[in-house]
Write a protein that binds this DNA or RNA. Structure first.
Lengths: 191, 191
DNA sequence: CATTATCGAGACGACCGGTCTCGATGATGG
DNA sequence: CCATCATCGAGACCGGTCGTCTCGATAATG
């Protein structure tokens, strides 16, 4: 079918791995394409042949590159408060670590700087997490654990936003107690 | 007392004004020191003599440079719901405009990229707004309009976070209805 | 008037993003 | 087995930016 050499899978992985490592090591602004190419043992053209910009590489590295922003599970035990608490606690724990914090900061910088990158990240990262939350909230709604007059999107946005603010304010990282209080506040309002 | 020429106040203002204008015009990442110097009719050294980095100029421009992130007032009518609604509505209106959005995105990018800038911005921008919110919530607490079991810092963080997330998610900008729902949700939980 | 610090202007080196070229490598079709 | 062709690693190259440095001019002090 297609003539010529095929795309090297090992180079692809090396590039994404290198980008991820260097991103966490030095942050988004200090990350350079040359450094990625050198670390990956790859020519720069090999990067630009498959990705359009530095932001695109970073976005892909953060997502396809591995589990670094781990898929925080949102269990369904039947009790919405227990489940939300577990989810938010797992997130706070992740964000309290240096790695999780660095990654979110890098992704936020990329989002705020580049609209195209922002769209990719929302589509493949933020969006899915928000959807996960909405689905669980919907099922809780159907189970009668939530008043039906409170819009699910608002609740999801408030939960995610409270996390985001704690990270971006760069003050003390969020704690498990904070997470519990946010859940209690939100669920009390939505009951 | 001090010998030699004094610092030019007009140059200082010109620099901050130029930085603010160019920031809103092109965004943080496209903002260049050369452009600021040219627009202000100023030598680059005059910028670097008084500010240490691009981030420092931007932070100062956004804050001391004028009222661009306007001091959103938080009235005290005695009814906390009315006041919070007014405050959050004013913010959503500001963030729905191109100018407000651009500015918050620029400040967020600067925050996520540079720790020193983040500290300045928290101290002089985010912190005061959060404190404003906390003070009003405290007074509502004292007036018996809020249950005392939900901590005020959590409420303030949730309110600010929900705004921040709406802006950073880069989807539809927040609306007045969203603001009202957030206030209702939070106050119902804190009552 | 001599001294001193800032001024506007711009040259300069270092660095980075992105493009281009090069010879080598590997996969396909004949 | 061989010609073709896309990708490979490597690196030269360009345009632009940051931050430093130098220059003569200007303003404020003693």
């Amino acid at each position: 079918m297609t003539r010529g050499r095929r795309r090297s899978e090992s180079s692809r992985r090396a590039i994404l791995d290198a980008a991820r490592v260097l991103l966490l090591e030095h942050g988004y602004e200090r990350l350079t394409i040359d450094a990625i190419a050198a670390q990956a043992g790859v020519g720069k053209q090999t990067i630009y042949r498959w990705w359009g910009s530095k932001g695109a590489v970073v976005a892909d590295a953060a997502l396809a590159g591995g589990l670094v922003p781990p898929l925080i599970p949102l269990p369904d035990t039947g009790d919405i408060e227990t489940d939300l608490r577990a989810w938010l606690r797992a997130w706070t724990e992740h964000l309290a670590s240096g790695v999780g914090r660095s990654l979110i900061l890098a992704l936020t910088a990329a989002t705020a700087e580049d609209r195209a990158v922002a769209d990719v990240l929302y589509e493949r990262f933020t969006g899915p997490h928000e959807q996960l939350l909405r689905d669980r909230l919907d099922s809780a709604c159907a189970a009668g654990q939530l008043g039906s007059e409170v819009p699910v999107p608002t609740i999801a946005g408030v939960l995610i936003g409270s996390l985001l603010y704690r990270v971006l304010s760069m003050q003390a990282p969020p704690t498990a107690d904070d997470a519990d209080m946010v859940v209690r506040l939100v669920l009390a309002g939505a009951a």
